[in-house]
Design a protein around this nucleic acid. Structure first.
Lengths: 244, 244
DNA sequence: CGGCTTGGTTAACTAATGTTAAGGCGGTTG
DNA sequence: CAACCGCCTTAACATTAGTTAACCAAGCCG
């Protein structure tokens, strides 16, 4: 492993949301990791159709997965935070049907896709973790699908803010009802499947109802109970999770 | 294995969309399978919150995954066809956040969730297959998310019909541009996140433009090219896939 | 047979969301 | 400093989709 951050001293892994791995697994991960990638905000990490030989774990920073129609309409599928695995579809299905773009300056651990088979053969725990991560992404997408299909723009906005707040908070990136948002309102609109104009109207409504305050790059949840009720949001039980 | 269909003589597995497995793996699958479940149309296979000890593969019939808001608004997340794995989220994350309901009379292979760990330890190929299936479901959800977020009701309808036609056709359940649809227009509406009334209007428009014909339970694609263009649908490359 | 339910259709009307356009504000750059 | 750009906001207006309600047809059941 050639990157600057040694897996054995990974600062992210110290966080207690992540399950501990034994030394043997950690050793494999260290060998699996072939480098580190640092990207600027807005940089493309993975491009649809463009079959990348890499698999990544976000070590630091935010990114987002997105997909577009021929005419340019774009949908943000999900945001990706530290600890999230990126490029699994390409690695497993050998076909990437979406792109990934960095939202902030981000650091990524780079894994060689062709070693993934060794992982499955020699490390059942890590194979399980990989499936776990895929199943969890699926679960998040299920939630977003419910949101896009059934919630109104107002409910959707409330839901999405809570969703992101909770994910960030689990990593210590948000707390005290304050989320330092690295994304623009336009990004949020794209994730919710509404126009930026309508997102603006909708966010204003949440302000007027004194549910949130969004100034500069910080979203403050003023009344979580009412926000949750509006969104009919159910927070995920706190749960430790694997990280590769 | 106690079910009526022996894995070694599984009729579904004969289909050439499915990758062949060696005898050792097949033997494990046979032991992993603890029974067979036959359900009537409309029967609940898995219920949200209700932590089931089972994992299923659809052997025959159609089902759908869905999720609802407190007030009853319901979203169909995806349809499930023969060969699809059901309940992976519950098995891996020990938490089911959606329900699964049979659309037709369906036969399911029942697997014991607690044996899944043995699978990961002893059968790397099958572990890989499990991740493959999870990644593929994720990919389909990505597609639906793009659809709900960005396509109009008309485009979405065109997209969804093509999506289901292709999935069914890969299994020999559709062909010659005819799909024998086991779902109602209302189901399709729920999958697309529009009301049944609006779905009716939308389907009528597709009729008027001579793109499809939907009589009784059969959807006929009259002009695939134009339908694809309308939806800006890109068909998936034909690909063999694993089945457990 | 007759009434009931389910799924579907249609129309008229209402509400939600998209579109277009104009302008503001902060940051950057020549 | 001025010009410009990205991001956001607002308003007026257009379009899409949701709601309600009436009606049909088919299947089912007492």
């Amino acid at each position: 492993m050639t990157g600057q951050t040694k897996c054995e001293q990974c600062p992210l892994r110290l966080h207690d949301v992540f399950l501990k791995v034994d030394d043997e697994q950690l050793g494999f991960i260290a060998r699996f990791k072939t480098g580190e990638l640092v990207v600027d905000p807005g940089a493309t990490i993975l491009l649809e159709e463009n079959n990348s030989p890499h698999l990544y774990t976000i070590l630091d920073g935010w990114a987002f997965r997105h997909k577009q129609l021929e005419d340019g309409r774009r949908q943000i599928l999900n945001f990706a935070l530290p600890g999230d695995l990126i490029g699994l579809q390409a690695a497993i299905l050998s076909e990437m049907q979406h792109s990934v773009t960095a939202l902030t300056r981000a650091t990524l651990c780079v894994f060689q896709r062709d070693k993934i088979w060794t992982l499955f053969q020699e490390f059942p725990e890590l194979s399980f973790s990989m499936t776990w991560l895929a199943a969890r992404e699926e679960q998040m997408l299920d939630g977003h699908l419910l949101s896009l299909g059934q919630r109104t723009a107002l409910e959707r906005t409330a839901y999405y803010i809570l969703h992101l707040y909770d994910r960030a908070a689990a990593l210590g990136l948000a707390g005290n009802n304050a989320l330092c948002a690295p994304f623009s309102k336009g990004h949020l609109a794209e994730a919710m499947g509404i126009t930026a104009v309508h997102a603006s109207r909708t966010i204003r409504k949440l302000h007027e109802r004194a549910l949130i305050r969004w100034t500069d790059d910080t979203i403050i949840i003023l009344d979580r109970d009412r926000l949750q009720a509006l969104a009919s949001f159910e927070s995920d039980p706190a749960m430790r999770r694997p990280m590769i």
